[in-house]
Amino acid sequence: MSEKTGDKPLRVRMPIGIDYKWCAGPASTDYLTGLKDGRLFGRRCPVCELVYFPPRNGVCARDGVMLGESVEVGPKGTISTFCIVNVPFLGQTIKLPYVAATIILDGAHLGFSHLIQECEASEVRMGMRVEPVWRDKAEWDYSLENILYFKPSGEPDAPFDDYERHL
């Protein structure tokens, strides 16, 4: 609601909303069409040989070159670091507290954020091994949200040295 208090200037409520189209480019097109089929594709840098998942703009910023071949990664991965979110915010759909983790998929060298569920927030730790839980296949779209969340895989934790360079 707009606000008018005392002799202060009027504060007018002004909602803004815009629908955008995002041109995914070749690397993110592979990545998003892979997700529609329930598969996880990153791309390898031809110079440093590191695998980007997600491949985002299709460029390795270390070397300033286009990423090369598509590489299937995961589905399991390692939590490199994480945050336990206790803060309610506008548009939030997830029950608090929840864990937002940075996950390095097996075969990939870049972290991305996703939810951790099916364990207490207090049980989550750096190095924890996780695996994805997918939505019903009928709901799959060109989206990482086809994965509902990651859950503990039950494997032993990865040693710190395995993921330290991704922090």
Binding site: W22, V85, V87, A100
Partner: peptide, 15 residues
């Protein structure tokens, strides 16, 4: 379009 909205502001990013 390439990730999931699990960050909660700058705090969720930097924590």
């Amino acid at each position: 379009p390439f990730g999931v909205p699990v960050h909660a502001g700058a705090g969720g990013y930097f924590s």
